[in-house]
Nucleic acid binder design. Structure first.
Length: 414
RNA sequence: GUGGCUGUAGCUCAGUUGGUUAGAGCGCCUGGUUGUGAUCCAGGAGGCCGUGGGUUCAAAUCCCAUCAGCCACCCCA
């Protein structure tokens, strides 16, 4: 039992858990299609450089969390830690430049070598969307509105907060970065050890530090809004206007910083208190520089990713399942007739469970256990009359039904 | 990567100051006469006590290591 363990941070999805993932992805998909997005599936691994170049050499994901290995041809490959890079790569290598805008959604496993905890696994699943080729703020609005719609149909929108921020354009970002470095360098002796490190690697990160001392310093830190270019400010204003128009509530949070280098302008997170420390349920932003960084034509984009495990934890209730009709064949002839009828009923759209072995008692017991609605008893007595016994498992009522009429008799259980 | 807590049957857990055949509930299987499920009764299967070392006459119990889970930091979905 201890010999065969699942790999650390992986998790088997069984029964209702698997069903709930499918249901969530299905609901998300339905809404994405309503927004005119098309499905897309990219490989689960890519050449390592695909992620290295796009995520930035300083990001934690690249520096310590990637599952990288060499294949038999000597290529360095990496299990995808997120979905956007793969889509961008497909966009470039597939020559999709001529079909802008590209609107797609995907879902599947992602891999990050992190220490597991609540809401965080090494293999987890994301549903994500990308809207590539539209530089207008309407794209940001639409994509965020879709996210809100999805959370709403899952019944958890009210438990989340949309936190919104802008990282500005490259110029704003750079000016602000310099101002931050100047400010924090002056007080670096008061910074936490971690933030001193961030000061060199990624100063923006200091903004979302949880350290109390750091937070105190933030009060007097330069404010991003003072360093934004006019264009960047106008863009952000348009996004906020749009969200109001569409009726999506948000909260400005100047401390939201995306972990990945390719983001600019809009950055947002839907967060919740319900999940402990890993409160981000869906997050994304605009990545206008990404595709160019990867060697493609300069092309803007916006998108987000949502963690299915986290969503599933919030939508506790298992999705409803159609109750089955259980066929209990007794004796050789009965079993054969049950098998034949199973096909007839299934083709008629009914959910059918066959009892594979054992007698009547066991058959009913099994029907009870799987919460079947009806048991159909097929024994020699019935066969002689050309009927079957239909037993309603809730009321215990039984009736004889001619075999030829069975399909219609059970129509209500479709 | 760092820290805290935990690891006994399929599941939830007991297991006294180390002491002989490791327990319960639920679940599972069989039976309680002929073809009727959730109740009831009787029986049964199922444990390298996470793994590897050590201390001891004796370890599920003590020590060390290791693996895994949970929670937090970090980071993020």
């Amino acid at each position: 039992m201890a010999k065969l363990q699942p790999v650390r941070g992986t998790h088997d999805l069984i029964g209702d858990e698997a069903r709930s993932h499918l249901a969530i992805a299905g609901a998300a998909r339905e809404i994405a299609e309503r927004y005119g997005f098309a499905p897309m599936a990219t490989p689960i691994f890519e050449f390592t450089e695909v992620f290295q170049r796009t995520l930035g050499d300083t990001s934690d994901i690249v520096t310590k969390e990637m599952y990288t290995f060499e294949d038999k041809g000597g290529n360095s490959l990496t299990l995808r830690p997120e979905g956007t890079a793969g889509v961008a790569r497909a966009f470039i290598s597939g020559g999709l430049q001529n079909e802008l805008p590209l609107k797609c959604f995907y879902h599947g496993p992602m891999f990050r070598h992190e220490r597991p905890q609540k809401g965080r696994q090494r293999q987890f699943h994301q549903f994500g969307v990308e809207l590539i080729g539209v530089a207008e703020p309407t794209a940001d609005v639409e994509v965020i509105a879709m996210a809100a719609d999805i959370l709403d149909t899952l019944g958890i929108l009210s438990e989340t907060t949309l936190e919104l921020n802008t990282l500005g354009d490259a110029q704003s970002k750079e000016q602000y970065r310099e101002a931050l470095v100047a400010y924090f360098s002056g007080v670096s002796d008061k910074l936490s050890e971690e933030s001193r490190d961030r000061l060199v690697r990624n100063p923006l990160r200091i903004l979302d530090s949880k350290d109390a001392g750091d937070r105190a310093l933030l009060a007097d830190a330069p404010r991003f809004d003072d360093y934004m270019t006019e264009e960047a400010a106008a863009f952000f204003a348009a996004v906020q206007d749009g969200l109001e128009t569409v009726g999506v509530a948000f909260k400005r949070n100047p401390h939201i910083v995306r972990g990945l280098d390719y983001y600019s302008h809009t950055a947002f997170e839907f967060t919740t208190e319900a999940l402990g420390a890993q409160g981000t349920v869906l997050a994304g932003g605009r990545y206008d520089g990404l595709i160019e960084t990867m060697g493609g034509p300069r092309t803007p984009g916006v998108g987000w990713g949502a963690g299915l495990e986290r969503l599933a934890m919030m939508t506790d209730a298992a999705p409803a399942v159609t109750r089955a009709i259980t066929l209990v064949g007794l004796g050789e002839a009965g079993e054969r007739e049950a098998l034949r009828l199973s096909g007839v009923l299934r083709h008629a759209g009914l959910t059918v469970e066959l009892v594979y072995k054992g007698g009547l008692k066991r058959g009913l017991k099994r029907a009870d256990r799987i919460n079947a609605a009806v048991a159909v008893l097929i024994g020699d007595d019935e066969l002689e009359r050309g009927t079957v016994t239909v037993r309603n498992l809730d009321t215990g009522e039984q009736s004889d039904v001619a075999i030829a009429d069975l399909k219609d008799h059970l129509a209500a259980y479709r």
